[in-house]
Design a protein around this nucleic acid. Structure first.
Lengths: 235, 235
DNA sequence: ACAGTCACTACACACGCGTATAGCGTCCTG
DNA sequence: CAGGACGCTATACGCGTGTGTAGTGACTGT
């Protein structure tokens, strides 16, 4: 059986610890994961973890930075081989996904609890570049929000599927890390990205409505809020 | 100064504990939040928390169920007052947002770590109904993915902004829970939802490319994967 | 040959945590 | 007026955890 990853035996102890931490943090979360268990998984003593990383928090930061470097390397690779197909090179995308797959859980948790800021910002930058090219071909009215804001929200949306992968898998009835589930999710994503969900008219209406809500606080909201609260105090 | 929420003094001790737990879990996460701190915030002894909820885990489950009931009530309200404007009633949406605002952090964390499954599934159901109506007006080729799958992915996307709110706020340079940040995010969302990001042709190309990837594992991927790994083992 | 550094281990400490238990006052019920 | 159920507190226990420290062997430069 061929290993797609370098033999863990070939890595330095420090790298093995980081790798084990990535996996343990990803599986159990930062708090529940223990230094002793990470050490055991890496085949070292718990003291060595402290020796190399100082503290659990610093170990986490090392993990974050490793992921940041990994994603950066991946995106540089993709950028270098760009101007290929319709939207980036699908081979690079597939490669990136394959590389990140074992760390998916860590990535999801890190993003969700607010660490890995540099990593997110980096993804926003990538998205913003992509959006700049998309805007050139864009027809109709100019965007109502800044490119940065749109890139940010779009990045968050793109991360939603990995971050909420447990729910996504359960809801579609297939593990999204198997080919079947993956296909279903990818097709759904392509469909959603290639169709506008609301019409430009609806969009204008929504913007107007929001402007009204923001300018004067409509009393209807308050009533609904209070009613909702009163009704739910039934325990 | 008017309180938008019912006076905490009016709630039963049990409700106050649950409320405090929701806030503490939301702010610090389930593991870091302590029963003692929750009890202090609720103005009771830590023993009472155990008396009412049995264990920390059961307290969490009670919180999840409370959020589930809250969202359900909110969606029932919205459903009852539906058939109004372009897409649901914006007043109800605003009210729901106002009600959920204090629990945003809890919701985000619960979703991210895979609990609150019932809550997510409920949201998928709501999205699926919405999608069914949208599909009626849909032009062009029929969807390539099941409605359930599209609703699932769309729900995940919709939750992305609240779940990753820390990153979103930082990236747009304004707290998304203040009017300024909220407006920027909402406008970005409306813009993204009202414009197709890729053309139907691109979509077809992407599907073909994915089918190729899935049918025969192209060696280019493996190479890229291994190259990426080799290059990043530099620490 | 020798001192020093470094990767690494074993062991112990202190502390915060969830949990358990005993007890107190109050209110309802027969 | 007993008596039990209930809401609630105070206090203690035990365990797992991150962290600290002392020590060992191997390799290195002088």
């Amino acid at each position: 059986m061929a290993t797609t990853q370098p033999d863990p035996e070939d890595l330095t102890a420090r790298a093995r610890i980081r790798d084990a931490a990535l996996l343990q943090f990803g599986e159990h979360g930062f708090e529940r994961a223990t230094i002793r268990e990470i050490a055991k998984a890496a085949g070292v003593s718990s003291g060595l973890v402290r020796h190399h990383f100082g503290s659990k928090q610093e170990l986490r930061e090392a993990c974050d930075e490793f992921m940041y470097r990994t994603v950066r390397k991946l995106s540089d690779q993709a950028r270098a081989g760009l101007v290929h197909g319709a939207f980036g090179d699908l081979n690079h995308l597939a490669a990136a996904r394959a590389v990140l797959l074992p760390y998916q859980n860590y990535l999801a948790r890190a993003l969700a609890d607010g660490t890995a800021a540099a990593l997110f910002d980096q993804m926003v930058d990538i998205t913003e570049e992509w959006l700049a090219r998309a805007d050139e071909k864009r027809a109709g009215a100019p965007p109502a929000a800044s490119r940065k804001a749109r890139a940010t929200v779009l990045t968050a949306m793109a991360m939603a599927v990995p971050v909420l992968h447990q729910h996504v898998s359960r809801s579609i009835g297939a593990d999204m890390f198997t080919p079947e589930g993956d296909r279903e999710v990818a097709y759904a994503l392509i469909d959603l990205y290639s169709h506008a969900l609301i019409t430009p008219d609806d969009a204008a209406t929504a913007r107007d409505a929001l402007d009204t809500v923001w300018s004067k606080q409509p009393p209807a909201d308050r009533d609904a809020v209070i009613r909702a609260f009163e009704e739910q105090n039934d325990d």
